[in-house]
Design a protein around this nucleic acid. Structure first.
Lengths: 337, 337
DNA sequence: TTGTAGGCGTTATCAT
DNA sequence: ATGATAACGCCTACAA
């Protein structure tokens, strides 16, 4: 393998490097480099000549070489529990937009809600010498492997100890749900929750708001699945019920289905509020009122936090307010032709 | 900034490099390198000493340096129209699994169904010297920018000319839908489609199968949105109707909703079949029968194709068969308690 | 089994 | 405005 020969003569097998361009242009490699970095500083005539030559030779600076000398990869690692979940999709969108604006790209890995997989994803990401990292709903939290001075930005409500964090004001979400049910004149409430701090926070906001108005509520602990929502309905219907707040849209879907199966009219007899405002919410029957997480904005903020972290700056956790999206399940059906 | 001093003495600010490890271990950097590559070939005693030292120094080989000398980035670029779409999520999952098994990672970028964004995403990906690339439902097709001998693997039904491709047998999907409607004794059919080759293929399979049994059908052209599905129902109900095949689950959702609004019983009076078997299908009311794309397997195949392409091997396009997932919208409701 | 040394493709400093 | 040249961190013949 006469490697030197091949690389200098036979164009195509390996693209022309900076040396070859410099040689053919009759300048030093430094000048070529400058053309692609500080274009202004080089004589406009030689610059154009080099640009033309480079493009005819199919040359462009190698990211590999550039990364090495700059000590950066321009990559941000991103760990997501599950790419399919629409809420995460919106977050990723926000992350991509901000990062792209700063010339950085997203290295993706999924944790599939398993601690071992999450750690493996982190190691995998670290192997690529990323400049930063973002984890959505981390399971292992600050036990995530790291390297150099890389800091992970967390998008999660827990644990509270994590320094660099973006989270949703879940308690406020619970409050909004309660207000919506109160607004539509309900009196017999129920909360369909799940384990974990997210649900607990949502319930607290819900409970506080109801109590302030002199109401109590019953509760059911599910697991965010549609099926657990159906179980919840079955159990809660043993008593008086006209207002349900479910901690997730999937559970709310189950509630709707079970009420439906019993011929109960929504929202006339029972109103239902979900959480997340996932893509399914407006497709359910009836269309589901839900508490929306500003997922895009949260992703964008996480990206900015990560960018700041790279530059040594450190920011306080950012807490986002949720927003009520009122649909048919708590009010009169929208006009449908 | 006495950079050289800092890097050689003050551990921490910049992690130890291979030189430092070699120096402290009293060996050459070549030996240290071998420990992390051809571990077997180095004396087990020195190896353990080096491993211990490296870990105490927090040393691990720099991906930057390694990539440069090997001329590879171990990155595969992935362009997705929209991360949120659950079908794509499953594909990404398949891609990640296969790639991870080969020590490669996913560099993600979204096209948001816009040609300009897709091209920009490709350029962005190319800047990172990826070893390969995969595009899901590309808009610009073979006009995607490329470099070196990098070849994009397409997951898409069109254009047919693309050499490296994974696609679904849409015609077979249409056939399955027709068979299911025939099986449940329907006689007055309708197809709710959209523009593009995917829909055309699905319709062909649907039409051929019906005609073979002596049936005809009416058609409506929507745009994959729920709203267009509702319009379809409104129009189609002008004539006799008891079996609808919609080219997408969202349109099917619209069909269901419109039928519902008119008090039409599903599946008793009208049966509905969707396409994709997206996450929403089992959540609709009633649960939607749909034609499933083997998204995970398709993603996995795309990844394998890309891996092969890197090694110079070239494969023929792979065509996947869809699968019927029967639910309530075409048959008796499942037992619900 | 281990060391030597060249090179991967670029950037950036210091002269000129 | 341009050229030499020293890194960047690592891998890998080749030699010992």
């Amino acid at each position: 393998m006469t490697d030197t020969e091949a690389s200098s003569t036979k164009a195509g097998s390996r693209n022309a490097g900076i040396r070859e361009v410099a040689r053919q242009a009759g300048v030093s490699i430094a000048t070529v480099s400058r053309v692609f970095n500080n274009a202004e500083v080089v004589n406009s005539e030689t610059r154009e000549r080099i640009v033309a030559l480079a493009s005819s030779l199919g040359y462009e600076p190698s990211a590999l070489g550039r990364n090495l000398v700059r000590g950066r990869s321009y990559l941000i690692g991103l760990i997501v529990p599950n790419v399919s979940f629409p809420l995460y999709g919106a977050m990723i969108h926000g992350i991509e937009d901000v990062l792209g604006r700063h010339g950085m790209s997203v290295l993706l890995a999924s944790s599939h809600d398993a601690a071992a997989t999450e750690v493996r994803a982190a190691q995998n990401i670290l192997r690529h010498a990323v400049d930063g990292g973002i984890v959505i709903n981390s399971i292992v939290g600050d036990a995530l492997p790291t390297q150099r001075q890389l800091g992970w930005v967390h998008v999660t409500p827990e644990p509270a100890g994590l320094p660099c964090r973006v989270e949703l004001d879940n308690e406020e979400g619970g409050r909004l749900a309660a207000l919506e049910l109160l607004r539509t004149g309900r009196q017999h409430f129920a909360y369909v929750g799940a384990k974990g701090r997210e649900s607990a926070d949502r319930e607290r906001g819900f409970a506080l708001t109801l109590r302030k108005m002199g109401f109590d509520y019953r509760r059911f602990e599910g697991d965010y699945s549609e099926e657990s929502g159906m179980r919840a309905s079955a159990e809660l219907l043993a008593g008086p019920l006209d207002g349900v707040f479910a901690a997730g849209d999937l559970m709310a879907a189950g509630v709707l289905r079970a009420l439906h199966a019993r011929g109960i009219k929504i929202p006339d007899q029972v109103a239902v509020v979900g959480f997340d405002d996932a893509a399914i919410a407006p497709l359910l029957y009836p269309r589901l009122t839900s508490i929306r997480q500003p997922a895009y904005a949260m992703g964008a903020s996480a990206a900015e936090l990560s960018l700041n972290l790279m530059s040594g700056r450190h920011n306080a956790p950012i807490i986002f307010p949720p927003e009520l999206v009122a649909r048919e399940s708590t009010g009169p059906p929208q006009a449908s032709f």
